[in-house]
Amino acid sequence: MGREADLELRYLELEKKIKRENLRRMWFRFKQSKLSILGLSMVLILFFVAAFAEYVAPYPSHAGLYINFRDAYKPPSLDHLLGTDMYGRDVFSRVIFGFRYAFMMIGLVLSLVVPTGVVLGLIAGYYRGTFIETLIVRLSDIFIALPPLVLALSIASILEPNIFNAMMAVSLMWWPWYVKLTYSMTTSIRNEPFILAAEAQGASTSHIIFKELLPIELGTILTKVTLDAGWVILIGAAISFVGLGAQPPTPDLGTMVSEYSKYLPEYWWMSLGPAMGIILIILSFNLLGDGIRDIFAGE
């Protein structure tokens, strides 16, 4: 008995070591690309800035409703790095708060969409050939039959125009894409020997889905999640831009571009700030996503 327990212990230790080794290898692969490192640091910096916006922004009070016509329409200067807007608010400060809204949108949408889509996709793939598969796949195909932005815009237009409802609309249109992704991965590994063996040994459905199938697919899902973080911002900005999302004076990046672009071309700096903010976020997540894809590409 003692010998067996000893072996078991050694085995666990070995497994831990392999896991550590794997992590080390993944990090090694990730840092091979300077662009991935750039993406990671940019995402971290943006997140930090968003989290501590009150302390980072030079004029935190300018985020929302604030009027000081004396300072209005000022071009970029040392006092106001990105100039001021028509109410005399510091554009730079507003962009910083815009990042906070951006991360909130990413968090809200992805935390709703990813679990729903992934679980449904796993279930559809696991129950291949049954009506459950047909139901889930057809349902997602229906949502995918409309261009995502069109669907999101039309749902948002029915609801009250605010940032929360806009994100609900985005979530409602987004989950099928995760179903599609996990479904296709699951069907391709569904009948692999190790899954069938686990089934034969009487492993429960939830064990197979979450302990056998999910870990294999995690890398691809994580890559998509990172790349999608940028897309959330893109779609969110688009909805806000047409006026169906966040409403002024919310310091949302898309809303700001929409508000300020009316003052183009004379007061170009107003639009420049939030537009650059949007681009920066999308770019960072895309670079990071490419790096994460590299990590799993070799597995």
């Binding site: 261009p147 995502p148 932005l149 069109v150 815009l153 039309s154 948002a156 237009s157 029915i158 688009a238 831009f241 047409v242 006026g243 169906l244």
Partner: peptide, 30 residues
């Protein structure tokens, strides 16, 4: 899909008298 979606914004920006701008107007007026 992204073209058809983005057309909603682009037609708005360029005052393009197309279906998407019509759609956006409708959406804003519910």
């Amino acid at each position: 899909a992204s073209m058809l979606g983005n057309a909603f914004l682009v037609e708005l920006i360029f005052n393009w008298p197309g279906l998407s701008r019509y759609g956006i107007t409708a959406m804003l007026r519910k």
